[in-house]
Design a protein around this nucleic acid. Structure first.
Length: 591
RNA sequence: GGGGGCGUAGCUCAGCUUGGUUAGAGCGUCUGCCUGUCACGCAGAAGGUCGCCGGUUCGAGCCCGGUCGUCCCCGCCA
């Protein structure tokens, strides 16, 4: 139906008769000549329809054309007069003088503008309802092309290193740990359910037991949790991979190589440190108040517990006395923050469990403005300011509570200050690893109970000996995260492949052997048959692509995203099903 | 489940602070004119339950209460 696309004709084809097909992007009717910008995926070519051609038939057809009609044009490629060349498009040297215009399909007036020159973007809800129209915009066309290239680069990277891509099941089993499962009712076994995998975690480990040695997959993952700007509802993709006979160092090196390559190829961001910095989970929490620090800026948090022990401000003193901590965040130039800014930051700290947000404004004239200095005393305040390196013009925020609460609260305040002061440079890529995640933490649901803090299948550092000799809360795992600009891009770990260590790890978390056998029996059983040491990671493809390309919303990098409430407003999903379908599944309709 | 922002023409928005004639703009749509534009231009037209319900008032797009929708955040995300 066409000899060329709308993006390839240049001076080279002048004189040729060509056939193009595409959408009417814009029509400019001059009464005599009519110009049509014909658009397809590849570009835009100007068509001219002249009344003199072929007894006026071309012009008559062109008069009826409207935006987004689909047409086929046969015509001659003609050089434009020198002063009519359009430098803004690749095909601007030429135009096609139409000999014949055929309407392949008409179109209703689109509900929103597709023109890419328009600065304004329509409301997301209406773009999602008409996603097939939205996809015609250059922005989304480019995004899908780049994402395709992104995924091909990942595949090439792993294939070049001897990995096999393996498809693991979509209909799998509910797992007792982790996020909420998507359940699929079984037709053959009423009352029983499949679950869509939250990740191919168990399958990839079993592939290692199966001798696959190096596996990867562009893997769909399903978690029934609420969405966020950087978290698509329900489903997302991970670059899942696993290797046998490796140590953590091997995985970190591979990840680093992969993401340095991808950042350079797919992002305009400058990588701050190509040898990705590493810090332990404890250090990240202590210095940045989060397990995913944004290292594009400083604003490090300091521990001032020792300085305020026994001081006159009872909130600080009693916090330290009762085993808690007092941390301080010095924000350079922060004295300029408004009362409203400080109130907002206080709310942010409170959201994270802090009872308030004490502060000292170190004014430019050297005086202090603070609700707490009169209790602290000038000497103590000066000592603190000196300790955190504050100079006139700064503000220092304080958190006083348990270690975890203080870390989380000041971490959130630090991040918000980074936003307020414009410290999050979009042209920088600060990759880093957080290592040594704790194996256990205190359960948040049951008072005093010890539970896995992250992945129960990770190998504790020190193995069985560590489990036997160390305090559970002190044990760290061969588990790490890869972080970019404050976003968690990947988790990863060396797995626990030893059944004896696994039983012991679960025992510490309060699981009896029988419970382990019941819930994870297939895994433990498999590991009894010569499981090799193995480990891997699973970077989130969509989130990484989003951050690298400075996209504000994860929905903008899916062809057909769910909306913020988990609906597909184009399909109308989720939707009711027929009583017959429910009956087959053994489900009694509600109502 | 909780908090915040937003909701006015097909689309993007102004108007709300301080209630007052017929609610505006740009784009789009429709009609007419125009043979060199490329976000063509010119002239004209159509298009509105100001999300919805209630209240205050002589009078509500504007103030108050409720409600619905949406986005962001918290919770949640081994």
């Amino acid at each position: 139906m066409r000899t060329h696309t709308c993006g390839e004709l240049t001076a080279e084809q002048i004189g040729q008769t060509v056939t193009l097909a595409g959408w009417v992007h814009r029509r400019r009717d001059h009464g005599g000549v009519i110009f049509i910008d014909l658009r397809d995926r590849y570009g835009i070519t100007q068509i001219t329809c002249n009344p003199q051609v072929d007894g006026n038939t071309v012009h008559t057809v062109a008069e009826k054309l409207r935006n987004e009609w689909v047409i086929q044009v046969v015509g001659e490629v003609v050089a434009r007069p020198a002063d009519m060349v359009n430098d803004h498009v690749v095909t601007g040297m030429i135009e096609v003088h139409a000999h014949k215009v055929t309407v392949l399909n008409t179109s209703k007036t689109p509900p929103f503008d597709i023109g890419d020159d328009k600065a304004e973007e329509a409301n997301e809800n209406i773009r999602l309802r008409y996603r097939y129209i939205d996809l015609r915009r250059t922005k989304l066309q480019n995004m899908l092309a780049e994402k395709d290239r992104f995924i091909r680069a990942m595949r090439a990277f792993f294939h070049a290193r001897g990995f096999h891509e393996v498809q693991t099941p979509i209909l799998a089993n509910s797992s007792p740990e982790g996020a909420r499962d998507w359940l699929v009712p079984s037709r053959l076994y009423h009352g029983k359910f499949y679950a869509l995998p939250q990740a191919p975690q168990q399958f990839k480990q079993l592939l290692m037991v199966g001798g696959m040695d190096k596996y990867f997959q562009i893997a769909p993952c399903f978690r029934d949790e609420d969405s966020r700007a950087d978290r698509h509802f329900g489903e997302f993709y991970q670059l899942d991979f696993e290797m046998s006979f490796v140590e953590q160092e091997d995985i970190l090196h591979l990840l680093q190589e992969l993401w340095v390559t991808l950042t350079k190829d797919f992002s305009t961001k400058e990588i701050l440190t190509e040898d990705f910095p590493r810090m332990t989970w404890h250090e990240a929490m202590q210095r940045y108040g989060t397990d995913k620090p944004d290292l594009r800026f400083g604003l490090e948090i300091a521990d001032v517990s020792a300085l305020v022990r026994g001081c006159g401000f009872s909130v600080f003193a009693s916090s330290v006395e009762s085993g808690g901590v007092v941390h301080a965040l010095c924000v350079p130039e922060g004295a300029a923050l408004s009362r409203k800014n400080i109130d907002d930051l206080t709310d942010i700290a409170k959201e994270k469990g802090a009872k308030g947000l004490a502060y000292i404004v170190y004014k430019n004239d050297g005086t202090l403005q603070s609700p707490i200095v009169k209790f602290l005393g000038d000497a103590c305040a000066q000592k603190i300011l000196q300790d955190v390196g504050a100079v006139p013009g700064d503000i220092v925020f304080f958190g006083a509570d348990t270690w975890m609460t203080v870390c989380a609260a000041l971490g959130a305040v630090r991040s918000a200050c980074g936003d307020l002061l414009g410290l999050k440079d979009p042209d920088k890529a600060a990759w880093m690893f957080v290592v040594d995640f704790p194996m256990y933490g205190m359960s948040e649901t049951e008072e005093g109970r010890i539970d896995f803090s992250h992945n129960p299948f990770s190998m504790p550092k020190g193995g069985m000996n560590a489990l036997k000799t160390q305090e559970p809360l002190e044990i760290v795992a061969h588990q790490f995260d890869l972080v970019l600009n404050g976003y968690e891009i990947s988790s990863g770990a060396i797995r626990n492949h030893d059944p004896a260590i696994m039983y012991e790890a679960f025992r510490i978390a309060g699981y009896k052997k029988e419970e382990v056998d019941q819930k994870f029996g297939h895994m433990v059983e498999a590991f009894k048959y010569g499981a090799p040491p193995h480990g891997g990671a699973a970077p989130g493809i969509d989130r990484a692509f989003m951050v690298l390309t400075n996209c504000a919303s994860i929905r903008d990098i899916y062809a057909f995203p769910k909306d913020g409430q988990g609906r597909d407003v184009m399909l109308g999903a989720p939707s009711a099903v027929t009583p017959t379908q429910l009956k087959e599944l053994g489900i009694t309709p509600v109502e």
